[in-house]
Design a protein around this nucleic acid. Structure first.
Length: 346
DNA sequence: AAATGGGTCAACCGCACTGAT
DNA sequence: AATCAGTGCGGTTGACCCATT
């Protein structure tokens, strides 16, 4: 067993990793006499350990009903659901998972589940979508991972939702690109440079005028909202969509204990999320035939069902940037943007 | 092949709770 | 009511594992 080198406390009692011999002594004693008082057990059993150490060793490792090995998907879901209601009450959570110890569940949570939820943009404390994503780009991996996660589920009906998540994330990405462009173009010095480069142009063939007009609408009409306002709202909605998606998945899983079920939240997709009418590069393949690789491979390497997926996200974004260069692309974005979250252009 | 850094998990630490005196 | 012992629980530690560089 891995662990620390043998140590002793001030009373000369051994600390650190247990040896097989110590394990055998403890098991033999408890089988014969029961553990009784943990405090007196070590001296009665002939172990140079404190009672607390013996109790811990027995309850976390030597108990015959301990279930070892990987957590099943059901156990994982149960832990998440229980944690949402109980918080870090590991022993309470463990009481609903036969054979699992609080220590084991705690370790599993801290080393795997917590990170998995974070990757999906879910606050592992509140179990709600994280709202600290002021930078949409920073949150895109989570959104895409969420869409990937959902599409991994072996349920064709849910793939529709995964596709919609993908579409929404793609729309947000386009809006972000637009915003950056508007910021650059809104700078007078940038305009000056542009005019120097391209000279006077007609409104029909120059999309930048239209972009600038849109930008001024954003900055003026939307007041405090320009982008810092509506992106977080859209993001939050996207993330809550994912939560709902997860909930609907759980509804279709086999019935578990009362703690293994989660209330299905109403509202699938809010109507105010724009659905892209233009086709972006396939960031995620959500069809049953082409289940995707996880975007963030830290989520769970075991869930990577198609590691040889032909298109990486970077490649896809490269394609997107190529697409961005086309005039029709911008017209489409502008049309979408101007019909969404701010007063329409006059 | 060696170095490095992140992940894992058994075990420890310290505080809180409970019941007996 | 105060104190103490025993136990339970959650947070933290640290050695080992393993993939990556």
């Amino acid at each position: 067993m891995m662990g620390r080198p043998p140590r002793s406390d001030e009373n000369g009692l051994k600390k650190g990793p247990w040896t097989p011999e110590e394990d055998r002594i403890l098991i033999d004693y408890i089988r014969t006499h029961g553990h009784g008082s943990w405090r007196v057990l070590p001296s009665l059993a002939g172990l140079n350990r404190c009672g607390k150490s013996c109790r811990l060793r027995w309850t976390n490792y030597l108990r015959p009903d301990i279930k070892r090995g990987k957590f099943s998907d059901e156990e994982e879901q149960t832990i998440i659901n229980l944690h949402a209601g109980l918080g870090n009450k590991w022993s309470a959570i463990a009481s609903h998972l036969p054979g699992r110890t609080d220590n084991e569940i705690k370790n599993f949570w801290n080393t795997y589940l917590r990170k998995k939820l974070l990757q999906m943009g879910i606050d592992p404390v509140t179990h709600k979508p994280r709202t600290d994503h002021l930078n949409i780009l920073a949150s895109l991996p989570q959104l895409l991972a969420a869409a990937n996660f959902s599409s991994l589920m072996n349920n064709q009906a849910l793939d529709i939702n995964a596709l919609r998540l993908q579409s929404d994330a793609a729309t947000l990405a386009k809006l972000h690109v637009l915003h950056n462009m508007l910021q650059v173009l809104g700078n007078p010095s940038t305009m000056e440079t542009m005019n120097l480069i391209s000279g006077p142009t007609s409104r029909e063939n120059q999309p930048f005028d239209e972009l600038l007009r849109l930008n001024s609408q954003l900055e003026g009409n939307a007041g405090n909202l320009p982008f810092g306002g509506f992106i977080p709202r859209e993001l939050t909605q996207l993330q809550s969509n994912f939560i709902n998606l997860e909930a609907s998945q759980q509804q279709q899983q086999p019935q578990l204990s009362e703690y293994q079920q989660q209330p299905i939240q109403d509202s699938l997709f809010a109507a105010n999320i724009p659905t892209s009418s233009t086709q972006l590069p396939a960031l995620i393949s959500a069809s049953p035939e082409h289940r995707p690789a996880i975007v963030e491979n830290k989520i769970d390497p075991n869930e990577i069902s198609n590691p040889s997926s032909s298109s990486t996200n970077f490649e896809a974004w490269g394609d997107l940037m190529d697409d961005v260069a086309s005039d029709s692309y911008w017209r489409d974005i502008i049309n979408q943007a101007s019909s969404q979250s701010w007063p329409p252009l006059s």
